[in-house]
């Protein structure tokens, strides 16, 4: 099943030009693995990048640069093993349980305090109502959830900004796992939310 909810053109352009911070880039990459349509879009933007590169003026190179590279060709290492999936390439910490069968695995935080984490929620779980103080990207890896009347299934991508409050609700039948990058911690809209946030740091 191919995803039906995609990153915006602007997000794909930032991804292709390499302007996204790594946490956000990873969430887009996870969507691309599920989405042939967006992979073609990114390839088209990279073709634009290639054409722009070809039209750049040339910088002078160090006189011995080419010979140095030519000499290094023989020692060039064999190519790395075939790429693993995005999730396998991220070093996540141990899972911390928020409740039985509800856990979070963080992958450290970026230079500007942005967070990247895996969130696992059980079938039927309603999250606490919350908003965001900055941008949040989500790619669903497993299961599905409803949010503001829209259904997000495995492979789907969701971008939230600071304007909206929401309360995702996991569809009954299967647990839901998401890869999430957020610019800042959430903005909890209830007291219970504040307490959970104090305990988990998201």
């Amino acid at each position: 099943m191919t995803p039906t909810r995609h990153p915006s053109d602007a997000v794909l352009a930032d991804y292709a030009s390499g302007a996204l911070r790594s946490a956000f880039s990873a969430v887009v990459a996870a969507h691309l693995e599920h989405c042939p349509h967006c992979r073609d879009e990114v390839a088209a933007l990279e073709a634009v990048g290639g054409a722009l590169l070809e039209t750049l003026p040339e910088s002078g190179l160090a006189a011995e640069g080419l010979e140095r590279v030519m000499a290094a060709l023989d020692e060039a290492e064999a190519p790395a093993a075939p790429a693993q999936s995005t999730i396998e390439r991220i070093a996540f910490g141990r899972e911390r349980f928020l409740a039985p069968s509800m856990g979070i695995r963080k992958a450290g935080s970026g230079a500007d305090g942005e967070l990247l984490y895996l969130l696992r929620l059980p079938s039927g779980q309603k999250t606490l109502p919350h908003g965001h103080l900055g941008v949040e990207f989500t790619t669903v890896l497993k299961g599905a959830y409803n949010d503001n009347g829209a259904l997000y299934r495995a492979g789907d991508f969701c971008e939230m900004d600071s304007a909206a409050d929401h309360q995702p609700h996991v569809v009954v039948g299967e647990e839901c796992v998401c890869l999430i990058a957020s610019e800042r911690p959430m903005r909890m809209t209830t007291r219970v939310g504040w307490l959970v946030q104090a305990l988990t740091g998201v």
């Binding site: 390499g18 992979r39 390839a43 991220i90 996540f92 992958a107 935080s109």
Partner: peptide, 15 residues
């Protein structure tokens, strides 16, 4: 900050 992430985006390739 020891960002525990090493993502190598794949090289350009269309489907």
């Amino acid at each position: 900050v020891a960002y525990a992430l090493t993502v190598h985006e794949p090289e350009a390739s269309t489907v």
